[in-house]
Nucleic acid binder design. Structure first.
Lengths: 142, 142
DNA sequence: GCAGATTCGTTGTGCTTGCAACGTATACTG
DNA sequence: CAGTATACGTTGCAAGCACAACGAATCTGC
């Protein structure tokens, strides 16, 4: 039979993503003791400033329950502050504490370094690869 | 702050892989009512012929417990047969039943079609993209 | 040839995820 | 300005996964 799983694009993509996520997660777990969802929430807050749980949910591709629990834990350990939204009291405003900002500075460096390593691994295909990834992401929305 | 999660390669890779897996899984779930691990086991058996659980575990990047349970379910529904290995009685020999082979022929067509769609989406970057993916997979082993 | 280490597949367990339900708050609609 | 619908964040719950432990079988070294 001719079908070969290990030459099948969705399979390769899935395995590569899992392995790379795992390796990167090990680095920021070592640096900060945080999980993947927590990393994503932190990273988004670092860039966006003060936003609601809903904003994060929409942008980081995580279920709102996952964001809610990640935010709670990040608050417990002091990286994130929760406060009320003045006008709409359904909303909760999340933002980094000074410690959170400090951590994100360190994690940014870790992330940039990791990305550089990946680009080096990709070599001359790096640009086309990222281009293709963007196309997949755009096309997968529909 | 400068770090942008949505331009971070591991994040993009993870989101793209998750979304594509989800969409492809919906297709073979509709065709055959199987899960992702079951699809992988079937696909590997279709290509490899009769092999042990251990062989599959090593090649499809799934934990042995996941392969074991997937194989049991596939046996229950009649796509896979288990038999003893003559020389080493620790091993279990898995292979597709005639119905399993039949199913894999249909699933191969579904998979090929899906992959063609992805390649179309990638356009001129397709070759470089797959090349890059191969490099990531090779580099991620170490 | 036998005691300990290793390998195979299965099964048990804690944890995370994804979905649904809920309470509260705001937005619509007549 | 009621009464209903919708949105927000939290919590409960079932399903799936990774990891560890296990019994059975084989290998290893003495």
């Amino acid at each position: 039979m001719s079908f070969q799983l290990d030459q099948f694009l969705p399979y390769q993509l899935s395995v590569a993503a899992a392995e790379i996520s795992r390796r990167f997660a090990a680095r920021y777990a070592a640096e900060a003791g945080i999980s993947i969802p927590e990393w994503r929430v932190l990273a988004h807050l670092g860039h966006s400033g003060a936003v609601s749980v809903r904003d994060i949910t929409q942008r980081v591709h995580l279920d709102k329950s996952v964001v809610s629990r990640a935010a709670s834990r990040l608050q417990e350990v002091g990286y994130v502050a929760k406060s009320d939204h003045g006008e709409d009291r359904r909303l909760i405003v999340l933002q980094l504490t000074p410690q959170g900002e400090d951590l994100m500075r360190r994690l940014s460096a870790v992330a940039d370094k990791f990305q550089d390593e990946l680009r080096a691994l990709l070599g001359k295909d790096a640009a086309a690869f990222e281009n293709g990834l963007a196309r997949l992401l755009a096309g997968a929305d529909g």
